Lab assay of single mutants.
Amino acid sequence: DYYKILGIPSGANEDEIKKAYRKMALKYHPDKNKEPNAEEKFKEIAEAYDVLSDPKKRGLYD
């Protein structure tokens, strides 16, 4: 669930989505986080943001 990945409610607005994305992206960026699964988690976060930040894609997802 993209909302769960970003840690936001399904009714989140654009600003909340952007803030959550930035926070999670910094936390899991492969250059900052050396955990083995950090890169995979970072890709999931980027995919979630891509879908939820685009009103058309978000509409299809919801």
Rank of each mutant, 00 (worst) to 15 (best):
H29R: 12
N37V: 10
K23M: 14
G59S: 08
E14L: 10
G59M: 06
D31S: 11
N37C: 09
K19C: 10
E40Q: 15
A20E: 04
G59D: 05
D1N: 11
P9E: 05
I17P: 00
L26W: 07
L6S: 02
A25G: 07
E47H: 04
K27L: 11
I8P: 00
N13A: 05
M24N: 03
Y61D: 07
K32Q: 05
R22H: 14
D31G: 12
Y2I: 01
V51A: 04
E35W: 07
E14N: 02
N33V: 15
I5P: 01
Y49K: 03
K56G: 10
I5E: 09
H29W: 03
Y49D: 02
E40M: 14
Y49N: 12
Y3G: 02
P36N: 11
D1M: 04
I5S: 08
K23S: 14
A20W: 00
Y61W: 09
N13R: 08
S10T: 03
N13P: 08
E44W: 08
A12R: 01
A20T: 04
K34M: 12
K23T: 15
L60E: 15
V51S: 12
K32Y: 06
H29N: 04
A48E: 00
N33T: 15
E35S: 09
K4S: 05
F42E: 06
K57I: 03
D31K: 14
K4W: 03
K18R: 09
S53H: 01
K56V: 05
Y61R: 09
E40G: 12
L52V: 03
G11I: 06
M24L: 12
Y21G: 07
E39Y: 08
D50Y: 02
A12E: 02
L6G: 00
I17S: 01
E16R: 05
N13M: 06
L26V: 15
I8T: 11
E39A: 12
S53N: 05
E35T: 13
D1I: 02
K27N: 15
K18S: 14
A20N: 07
A46G: 04
Y3H: 01
E14Y: 12
G59K: 07
Y49P: 01
E39P: 15
L60N: 12
I8W: 00
E16N: 06
A46M: 12
K41Q: 08
G11F: 04
A46C: 11
Y3A: 01
P30F: 09
D62F: 04
K19E: 13
R22D: 15
Y49S: 04
N13D: 02
K57Y: 04
L6D: 02
I45V: 07
K19M: 14
K57N: 11
M24P: 03
P36A: 11
S53T: 11
G11D: 05
S53Y: 02
S10A: 10
I8H: 00
